Simulated scan of single mutants.
Amino acid sequence: MKKLEDAPAERNSERTKAQRRDFAMGLLDNAQRYNSFTNYIGEAGINVWTKRTRGRARQGDRAVRIVQERRGQNLTMTFAVIVMNGLVHHELHLVGMTAERFSQLLHFTSPQCNPGQEVSFIFDNARAHGRAADANLPAKFEIQYLPPSSPFLNICEKAFAL
């Protein structure tokens, strides 16, 4: 028996596959335009709480672990990678990502790009990314959202899975 994993029902629907294909074709069409200045941004929530799963006890006694009610501190890890420059920005927050923090991340990342070069920011459709267009970035910056259920199209998302 294997552990079951939940998969979104729309993950491999024809509509989602078409959106992925269109997104990938758009990346290929714009490859010359952006000249490797595609900025991938990703974030993940992590919890630093750990526990042992095995213990020792005398024969006949149960191995018991005393735990606290809380599971520990949640952290949000965020970073940006530009194809040509590698890792250009990273952050660690003790709280979740908000639209304001995400807007600040875009502003911290944008100076890392070549002045005058057109740059594409690529990230998922997380709630905090919804107002990214309101970040008042210069006109040379384009914002692209990943298609639904397509984290494999963002190199940052793959790093979080390791």
Rank of each mutant, 00 (worst) to 15 (best):
A126R: 01
K3V: 14
I82L: 06
R21I: 07
E69W: 09
T78P: 05
L4V: 12
I122Q: 00
P147A: 01
A159G: 11
E69T: 11
L146A: 00
F102A: 04
Q144S: 10
R33H: 14
N39H: 02
T78D: 02
V81A: 08
Q144D: 08
Y34K: 00
S120A: 13
L162G: 14
L27T: 02
K158N: 13
M77G: 06
F121M: 08
A128M: 07
T53D: 08
Y145V: 00
R11L: 08
R15A: 14
T76V: 05
E14L: 13
A24K: 12
A139V: 12
F79I: 05
T53W: 03
A126W: 03
Q19M: 13
A7K: 15
A63T: 04
N12D: 12
F102P: 01
M84I: 13
V88S: 04
L4T: 10
R127F: 04
M25G: 07
E10G: 08
F160S: 04
A9P: 04
A57C: 09
G45L: 07
A161G: 12
E69N: 12
S110H: 06
L87K: 09
F160C: 07
A24T: 15
E10Q: 08
P148V: 01
L87W: 05
P147M: 04
K140H: 14
L27C: 11
Q144M: 11
V81C: 07
R21V: 07
Q32L: 13
G72R: 03
P111N: 01
V95S: 15
P115V: 03
S36Y: 09
H93I: 04
N114W: 06
